[in-house]
């Protein structure tokens, strides 16, 4: 037994992560010391970021920005899900539709959807809905393609079993197709969420500077690097938290795939 194995419970947990904690603390301290020697218009350090974070939070600026950003994110993402899942199901079910859409799907699949932002600005303007449209656009395709991929990966034999037991089309959809492709839907939802976050930030950079992206641009042109880092930190934390949640949901959705994954 190693000394580590002899420890139990939280103590063992602490001991296990002690080297990592030490390294990260060391890096932060180094950053602090080195950062203080740099021009504040050019670089910053952890305690300055902490102060900026407190200032942004207490002035209400941060809270408002988070609300603005989440509104755009959730609305655009919700619309992306609402369009991506049913359209993916339809395209997966009807070969002709798939065939008809395939040139367009191919084009959207390989091209960065961000390239359409200038056109969205022309068509939708530079208001709230333009941002929602950008978020919708970037996440819709990830969801759509994953649902479609799920439909094509669903083994034919499941459908045959259902048919042999007299299932009708609606029953097949409810009892076989949807549960069968649930892991793919969940993957699409996770990837779509990651892209929606990108869409949110990019649209706030380009369209009506508000929200967390707006804070970043506002303070970066004023060379207030600590405030920029504060907003970056908030976005990274929110993004990581949302993505971790989505990943957990995805793994739950695929719990019955455990055995299949064993020989993947």
């Amino acid at each position: 037994m190693t000394p580590l194995e002899r420890l139990r419970g939280p103590k063992r947990h602490l001991a296990r992560w002690a080297p990592q904690t030490a390294i990260w603390t060391g890096l932060l301290v180094l950053w602090e010391i080195w950062g203080r020697g740099q021009s504040p218009f050019f670089f910053t350090y952890p305690t300055a970021i902490g102060r900026a974070l407190l200032r942004l939070a207490s002035s209400g600026e941060l809270g408002q920005a988070i609300l603005d950003s989440l509104q755009v994110l959730l609305l655009g993402y919700g619309l992306g899900v609402a369009a991506g899942v049913p359209l993916g199901l339809l395209a997966g079910r009807f070969a002709y539709l798939r065939r008809l859409l395939s040139p367009l799907m191919m084009a959207f699949y390989v091209t960065p959807r961000l390239a359409l932002i200038p056109l969205i600005i022309i068509w939708v303007g530079i208001g709230f809905w333009a941002k929602v449209t950008v978020v919708w656009l970037v996440c819709f395709f990830a969801i759509f393609f994953n649902v479609l991929h799920g439909m094509s990966s669903l083994s034919r034999s499941y459908l045959e079993v259902a048919q042999a037991y007299g299932a009708n089309e609606a029953q097949i959809l409810r009892e076989v197709t949807l549960p069968g492709i649930l892991p793919f839907i969940a993957t699409g939802l996770r990837l779509g969420l990651g892209l929606a976050l990108i869409g949110m930030v990019v649209s706030e950079f380009l369209i009506g500077l508000n929200g967390l992206g707006g804070i970043i641009v506002y303070y970066s042109v004023r060379l207030r690097v600590a405030d920029v880092f504060a907003a970056v930190t908030v976005i990274v934390v929110i993004g990581t938290a949302l993505m971790t949640g989505a990943r957990a949901l995805e793994q739950r959705a695929a719990h019955w795939q455990l055995s299949a994954r064993a020989f993947r």
Partner: peptide, 8 residues
């Protein structure tokens, strides 16, 4: 090959 639904 049994034809069971793995999610049920």
């Amino acid at each position: 090959s049994y034809g069971l639904f793995p999610w049920r």
